[in-house]
Amino acid sequence: MIITTPRDWSRIEANLTDLGARRVFIMGCGQCATVAHTGGEPEVREAAARLEAAGWEVTGWTVGEVTCHLGGTKLESRKHGGEIGDADAVLVLACGAGVQTVADSVDKPVFPGLESLFLGNVIRNGIFEERCQMCGECVLDQTAGICPVTTCPKGLLNGPCGGMWDGMCEVLTDRECTHVRIRRRLSGQGRAGIRTVEPKDFSKTLKPGALNIRPPRGSR
């Protein structure tokens, strides 16, 4: 899921003040931002209370089911058309994808209420770790299911580097070296080898990513 963190509140207030907005509609997200405790119902209510305490009028709020889904968010926006119509601005407590989807769905100025950090694994409730950078060319088959692109701070495919000491990482000194973990797991599974992982094909890293898996028109 997409891990988000609350945006510096003073920046949100500055955005609204610069616009001269007095009335605000707030939209959260029922998916990642709800799990991350940044854009679910409690956080949306809290943001509303905070804005009202600072003198803004909150015309309404909602938590979209999947805010990055264009069709769903357009529908959600229509359901709250009156409240959004009364607002000078929309504050979105969702990742950057969600913010842009809302901006494509309403006519009003839209502002981000969160910072988007990474694609994260949920280790436990409230504890998230980045394990995948969506590089488009998975190496996990060669690295025992541990991604060096993401979890080695240098992103080295072959390692460890010279900074490793006692099995620990040079950069994140409280963490075990990714490459030590990879070698341990490979040899534990009887897969130890000295094969060098080839340089990455960065042309596979789509930016901006776009994918259409719909069958071509007329194919069925």
Partner: peptide, 22 residues
């Protein structure tokens, strides 16, 4: 570069062999 004192040694050795192969 080589790091004779950096443990675990089996990992270092595999790394050395990999570099030689390269």
């Amino acid at each position: 570069a080589m790091f004779p004192e950096a443990e675990p040694w089996d990992v270092q050795l595999a790394r050395i062999e990999q570099k030689v192969e390269a």
